[in-house]
Design a protein around this nucleic acid. Structure first.
Lengths: 214, 214
DNA sequence: CAAACCCGGGGTCCTAGGACCAAAGTCCGA
DNA sequence: TCGGACTTTGGTCCTAGGACCCCGGGTTTG
């Protein structure tokens, strides 16, 4: 028994998904699931306690999300390699995660063999990137993404993505409508979008607002 | 060994989710996963071949979706009880499924014990509904939902939910802008919404358009 | 046959939205 | 201290969007 066992921590808010991932990984003798967590905070605690080699991390979770967890891992100097599990094809979701230290990502429709290969690959020190994501990283972001937004802009965008008008947002955030419009102009400029509808859709696609949010 | 075994078919487009559900159900001796399918068409074929007692069905899948599969099961006179697995809280997604014959639904964050209980319950002939869904069924739909839209209206809404302006939609669908506006007015009226942004969000939430559609 | 529905398209009109100009105050890092 | 970023708000102006009126043709159903 000379084969090294890769210790894996599974982080996803859905128990079904965690179980599916665990079962997939249990198919291989060289992979061992040493723990699970349901959000970013649980991830940090479990990573500290269990010292996994690889963390499978969903980005979009309630409470502390995946990107924040990545920052936390980095700040704690945790050496675990992080493989992001995502439903989202949008590079601008993934680029911030990669910038925050993720070693790669796989989509949720991954099959067991591909998942195992990805885990082994990041454990071996590789970085797994789709060409479109690699290009974005190389060029800097062609479309900066939500990371370029200020906190206030993000608040306004969140309200837009809840279907509210500028007037309603002004009331909610205790601003003048002029201010909301100014933020909106900034948001559209930064994201390279044409109107609020595109902005709302973008917010949903990138996980800023959940589709079931209202 | 007098206990009856409930035969279950698992239908979801994500292998990870299917595996998670299978593993959950395997925890109980009275539940047996007899097959899997990745979309509505696969569901119909498997249901016909395997004759499950209960089908766990995701509504939102590429190709033939869950509601269409429900219609197909009914048309085929298949007696299997259908338990919908959904990420969506929105009753207007679920009501059409229940109307199409689903015996109930559980959310994707369900734990193993609750899932098993739900399977047994629908197998025993019960209908599992949250009060808000039951009320909608009793009253008829307060908000008719996408089912009230004509085919053309649905096409226009799909384009709106892709972030296109009326002018762009007119070009795409070879219409005058006036006609697009007329459809838009009809859509907003039928869905009880105020503007296109809400309509786009609604389309995403109800699965008419996938968040990753553009 | 009439009614209902769907489709397409015309008109008028108003306002929400956004482009683009300006300004002031606060905070923080070099 | 100064400059940049952020936040807030004002102005002007134009147009996309949508409410609400109208019409005609085709199809289906009672």
């Amino acid at each position: 028994m000379a084969a090294e066992v890769i210790r894996v921590l599974v982080v996803d808010d859905h128990p079904v998904v965690r179980q599916g991932l665990r079962t997939f990984l249990d198919l291989w003798d060289d992979l061992e699931v040493v723990g699970e967590a349901a959000d970013g905070a649980g991830c940090l605690a479990a990573a500290d306690r269990l010292r996994p080699d690889v963390i499978l991390l969903d980005l979009r979770m309630p409470g502390t999300d995946g990107v924040h967890a990545l920052h936390g891992l980095r700040a704690a100097g945790n050496p675990a390699r992080v493989l992001v599990i995502t439903s989202f094809a949008e590079p601008s979701v993934i680029v911030p995660a990669v910038r925050a230290g993720a070693a790669g990502y796989v989509y949720k429709d991954v099959d067991p063999a591909a998942l195992a290969a990805a885990v082994r690959s990041v454990h071996a020190g590789h970085v797994l990137l789709h060409p479109s994501v690699a290009r974005l990283l190389a060029e800097g972001e062609a479309r900066p993404g939500a990371a370029a937004l200020t906190a206030r802009e993000r608040e306004v965008l969140t309200e837009v993505a809840r279907g509210n008008s500028n007037r309603e947002i002004a009331k909610t955030l205790l601003l003048s409508e002029k201010t909301v419009k100014a933020h909106m102009t900034a948001i559209l400029g930064k994201l390279g979008l044409h109107d609020r509808t595109q902005a709302a859709l973008y917010a949903v696609r990138t996980g800023l607002v959940s589709p079931a949010g209202w």
